[in-house]
């Protein structure tokens, strides 16, 4: 065409999925929308933004071409390059060391903090 047009092999970037995404509703920034994630992925960026997805798949339901810009695959890419959130690192370390995600717990003690990705 007349102007530099970006190719995105998976997502048409129509933006129809923005408003259904619960993470976008809170963040209100394009990089957290399903389209934004697909754009970051197609730019080859590994980013912790990919962890901020509830895996609800509402984006795929409304997407006219059935694209799924949600979490698992994008997160697998992060794990492969060793990118983790600090909370995730703590959780994994706790599981390895104490056999639970909460950290050291006395017998019968109710955990006070829950770390998650």
């Amino acid at each position: 065409m007349l102007i530099d047009l970006n190719e995105n092999p998976t997502c048409t970037e129509c933006g129809l999925c923005r408003e259904v995404c619960p993470v976008f509703q809170i963040q209100q920034r394009e990089e957290y929308s399903p389209r934004g994630r697909a754009m970051l992925d197609s730019a080859g960026i590994q980013t912790l933004v990919f962890y901020q997805c509830t895996l609800c798949r509402t984006c795929r339901i409304v997407c006219p071409v059935g694209h799924d810009p949600s979490g698992e695959t994008l997160r697998s890419g992060l794990i492969a390059v060793g990118e983790e959130t600090p909370a995730n690192q703590v959780m994994i370390a706790n599981i390895r060391q104490y056999g639970n995600p909460f950290g050291p717990l006395a017998e019968g003690e109710i955990p006070k903090t829950l770390t998650c990705c």
């Binding site: 102007i3 970037e13 990089e31």
Partner: peptide, 26 residues
């Protein structure tokens, strides 16, 4: 925001005509 993720996500609209975003303000 001037972070890379923001600048990429705002660098074009649904036309996919590519541009350069310096900063985003809300």
């Amino acid at each position: 925001s001037t972070r890379e993720e923001t600048r990429i996500a705002y660098s074009r609209d649904a036309s996919r005509i590519q541009g350069e975003c310096q900063t985003v303000v809300w």
